[in-house]
Amino acid sequence: MTKSQSFRPLAAVEKKNQSIQLVNTINIAKAIEQLENSEASAQSIFIGTVPSMSGSFEVKKLFFESYEQMAIKEMAKISDVALSEFNLKKVILWHCLSTKVVGETVVFVGTCSTHRADAIAATKYIIDTLKEMVPIWKKEYFKNGSIWANAHP
């Protein structure tokens, strides 16, 4: 897989005020450039990366699986709600699939608005709701095995 192929979305919803993507690799510079072009004064960003530890276990890598068609719909619903509830000018919501190693970016949430309070609150709403609703599953690989995160109560 070449670099340009890895940035190509696996599924996407692209509109003037929102960019929703499932991708193999997140290009943070490109995401920030899109936010800056929206010409709103307040931009808020959340970036999630692969941690080195999960509880007391050392993480080797993560694998992300998704029900892509449904995931992109759920992501678009979250974005639509955020746009109207928080008076946003733009939402960027990109999530990675496939295998990721420690330190790699997994999720990028970017919002912009005229007022910082709206952008910050919207970013929190989007990442919190994504974690609750979007059909994406993370498998954590450790030295001695692997588990699907959150699978058991």
Binding site: G48, I127, W137, A149, N150
Partner: peptide, 10 residues
């Protein structure tokens, strides 16, 4: 129809 186990994205 699809089974959606507890999600863990983000």
């Amino acid at each position: 129809i699809a089974i959606i186990p507890p999600v863990s994205g983000g």
